[in-house]
Write a protein that binds this DNA or RNA. Sequence first.
DNA 1: CTGAAAGCGCTTACAG
DNA 2: CTGAAAGCGCTTACAG
Lengths: 342, 342
Amino acid sequence: MTRKRNARANSTDVARLAGVSIAAVSRAFAPGSSISPELAERVHKAARQLHYVPNSLARSLITRQSNIVALMLPNMSNPIYSSILAEASRGLEGIGKQILLFTPPGVEDFDKSLQQMLEYQVDAIVIAAASISSRMATLCLDRDVPVVTMGRYLPGLPVHSVRPDDREGGALAADLLLRGGGRRFAIITGPSSLTTMIERREAIFGRLAGAIDGAQVKVHDGHLTYAGGYQAALEIMAGPDRPDSLICLTDIMAIGAMDAIRHELKLRIPEDVAVIGFDDIAEAGHASYRLSTIRTPVREMIDHMIELISPTRARSEPVAIKIPARMIVRDSTRAIDNIPAV
Amino acid sequence: MTRKRNARANSTDVARLAGVSIAAVSRAFAPGSSISPELAERVHKAARQLHYVPNSLARSLITRQSNIVALMLPNMSNPIYSSILAEASRGLEGIGKQILLFTPPGVEDFDKSLQQMLEYQVDAIVIAAASISSRMATLCLDRDVPVVTMGRYLPGLPVHSVRPDDREGGALAADLLLRGGGRRFAIITGPSSLTTMIERREAIFGRLAGAIDGAQVKVHDGHLTYAGGYQAALEIMAGPDRPDSLICLTDIMAIGAMDAIRHELKLRIPEDVAVIGFDDIAEAGHASYRLSTIRTPVREMIDHMIELISPTRARSEPVAIKIPARMIVRDSTRAIDNIPAV
DNA sequence: CTGAAAGCGCTTACAG
DNA sequence: CTGAAAGCGCTTACAG
């Protein structure tokens, strides 16, 4: 048991010590190979003695499978992205793959990150909180590397997408506030470049139409952050015709808005203004907020993503998966019948 | 510009099209190589035509550098770990490395994850919210793979560690509450197996000694979660001699405790009971909490980690880096002189 | 500066 | 079941 420093034994070393061919040591470490139990045991014994660790890079070179999935996640400020990352890691490890994380600082770095992913020979690319250029999407397609966007829909590009049903979610949210007696609505939104934001908004206006005058609905940008939601709420609630119903297109903005409403404006929720969000981040369930929200079904999204990148699925036309919306009613909205509080 | 599907061009293809050797292709893509501008341009032109993407796995096989750093992070329920992950990714990408993420579900899976990391030929291993067995630590040492633990100290093992000065932090926290007039103390702690918890606690008791009777201090386990902190606060505040000062060894537990104290027990913070935490997670700064806390200096920890895994640093004895504590005073503690509120 | 050759550590038909 | 040989895609002394 002498232990030489930095002596990384390779399969040749193991083969020599065990008195077998290197093919045998390869087989001994490949479950299901045709190798006799005796030979396998001899190899393993030698491997143990030498502290042998197989080199998966060399293996990948031949098998053309790295068991690495790239995840692009430029933005971790919203807890929902941490959930996606955690669930993705859990799910992928379940099928023997690990996540290689890329957090490009800005949009202008996306292409560089994508290029690097391909150099690492990743088996698939998952994109959250970001987008992909048409050029890179085509390059990935050519190389047979499946691309899946999470929570974002990029029409026209040859990539898969998995997201909640944002139209259904928007309608549910508007409906809840309407049935709670809301008449003066406001929306705190994120960037209009995101189809998610557009669809939620359109569905909200669609449901509001008929009940109230859509032109009266104030829409402010909360930049998808706590501070942005806080500031937007301040502006919205300051003007005349103070809203009695506030729909925030993400929970993190809703949390900021609630804090502004209660602690700076000294108004009550839901008595003075009802608030609803989207995502169902952990904070939404905390006693200080008890925020009603439209859940982002992270677990289901990950399950679909994993199915989409599986090699058994033949390369196919881009598929866009939409998961049914689910509303979680807590205390930030006025009570109505027929919908049980959680 | 015909585009064949799944035609992954390699350096041989590029060399042939450019009419050069594969060595020239290699040099054209290795910055600083001795190659004439004309040759390089010819190679790049051919590469562009073929949509050539260098295979970094093949390169790593020769250079013995994968530019991959493994991060073990079994637990993402505490936002502080998301911060560590985000900062680590940002910092490592700055030196051209990517994070390969491992989230083993339980302690019994740690060794398997570590083994896999070595198979991927990672350049370094970073461990957060977890530990490493003596056997694996030695194996990493033998293979010259540096190991750094974040926020945890594993005495006796050949691994580096980077963490806040927990003794200083504990003393600062106790001192603040003492100077705010606190006399009846309670602590919500995490697992006693963590040196971090032990050191914070010891320092707190050290500072309390002389001022009050340490035997009176209630210590409850909050399991490092929101729900655990909530429950522990309920138990602590229910008994006789209700504490006027509560030290929570992590913010996420403090947040839970604050919610229990205010929303279930209907007590005021800090008038009835002052609360202080550790970490300074985002939620601690939100208007609903305004929690005083001892910051975990994530950015500085990452900077040190990066220095520790740099190849310029010769393999050395394990170094344990402690970063000075910094207190953030907000509104969950009673005001005292000399310490400006943030 | 440029290329032919050896080799990184492994897997996989192909024979036996 | 077992081994010799070819080869995955690249880098790097070594000559020229």
